[in-house]
Amino acid sequence: MKSLVAEFYKGIFKENPILVLALGLCPTLAVSTSLQNALGMGLSATFVLICSNILISMFKRFIPSRVRIPSYIVIIATFVTIVELVMEAYLPSLYKQLGIFVPLIVVNCIILGRAEAFASKNGVFASFLDGLGMGIGFTFTLSIIGLIREVLGAGKIWGYPVSLDFVPVLVFALPPGALLVLGLMLAIKQAGDKR
């Protein structure tokens, strides 16, 4: 039981996909312009991650190892298509904001990485917890970057102005700001590692 809890926790801190494993960087940089976008992307990716982890761990016996990667990709792409269609129908403005990064969840290395490294070797429930933990770790880190960039770059939190006379530092809303914030976060993380 204790190991199952560990499977869940490791994704949030010890093996945080963005800060420790440096995976899923493209969406992290591209959609972290605001907290809303970050949360939308994080939750979508988490959904796909959990579903694909469960399905792959269920079918791991039946998938021949030679065609495993294409099979995983098909499974992942199926769930991504579901997310795409649902988001386009019910959250059209978010769908527009995230743009091509919704279909690109397919190639988010976190998802394929977990399929290959974890779900293909572990049981259904452990894979579910692994997916949930990794998903939360991803969503949490992404949201923090989104929050920082939204506050500094637009002077808003969740779309509401922080203060009337706050002058936004526009660069944080632009691509260089994304690279900068992530670079500094990684540096802070590296400074915190054991000396």
Binding site: A22, P176, G177, L179, L180, L182, G183, L184, L186
Partner: peptide
């Protein structure tokens, strides 16, 4: 990796 991101920025 961090310096790579800063240079990219």
């Amino acid at each position: 990796i961090p310096i790579a991101f800063i240079v990219a920025a």
